[in-house]
Nucleic acid binder design. Structure first.
Lengths: 124, 124
DNA sequence: ATATTAGTTGAGCAATTATTCAACTTTAAT
DNA sequence: ATTAAAGTTGAATAATTGCTCAACTAATAT
């Protein structure tokens, strides 16, 4: 009898734990979606945009000026954020105004800061 | 006189907003650290590992079996998580046992799920 | 009508990243 | 002592990603 019913290049050390956790895991699609959400937030430019939008509705040029980046680059990032349901926009004349479309962003930023402060306390 | 004191390929549309937000922005280093934290969480394999570790301390082989992946791959990811202060480990005989080293991980996963549920409600 | 500005978009390039592979260390078992 | 297993590590490869550039649309101003 194989000592390993799981497909992997190594043995199961604690069958009880592996069985229990295997049952408790969420489905792959949900894990992918959570990962995508954090992947999109996990980039300096985008988190700056979100931090700014949390304080004010802003048009593309204004965001570009605050971050000292090209409007093309900002527009690309806003498009990615929009596809992921994190920001939304409205058009008014020539300008396009962006706002947050996710009430969790503030918490996400706060949690990130808490993590960093926790780590820096540990070192110091 | 230049109508734009900011360095960018476009004009400032709302000087008041740009000035206000520019002052309110955090420093670049903090934004980078927040982004790094979420970048490391924002990958399917790693979020699965964290989800599993949130439920149980586990050794590398057991994690590899739960995720049906090679122990080398899991070890690489655990190493990245450890460098970022997200997991910690203890050695016992041949095995190395990993646990979460960040009390915010549970909240991070919950926030991710809330975001996804919120988005799916909007569509459906 | 023409020119200008705000914003978008696709292609291209450089940098980063996830996994595999092979070699290695350490601990335990025979 | 030898062998085997748990885990780590560095190099290599393929895939993804962030920004730039140039061309474009849409709205406004002259």
């Amino acid at each position: 009898m194989s000592k390993n019913e799981y497909i992997c290049d190594c043995n199961v050390i604690h069958k009880d734990v592996v069985d229990k956790i295997s049952k408790e895991m969420l489905n792959n699609s949900l894990f992918s979606k959570i990962a995508d959400f954090y992947k999109i937030i996990g980039a300096t430019t985008r988190i700056k945009i979100l931090y700014a939008l949390d304080k004010n509705e802003m048009c593309v040029c204004d965001i570009a000026n605050v971050l000292s980046m090209s409007k093309s680059s900002i527009s690309h990032q806003l498009s990615a954020l929009r596809k992921n349901g994190i920001v939304k926009c409205r058009k008014d004349g020539k300008e396009v105004y962006y706002t947050l479309d996710d009430e969790h962003i503030k918490k996400v930023i706060e949690l990130g800061i808490e993590h960093i402060e926790h780590k820096e306390k540990e070192i110091g």
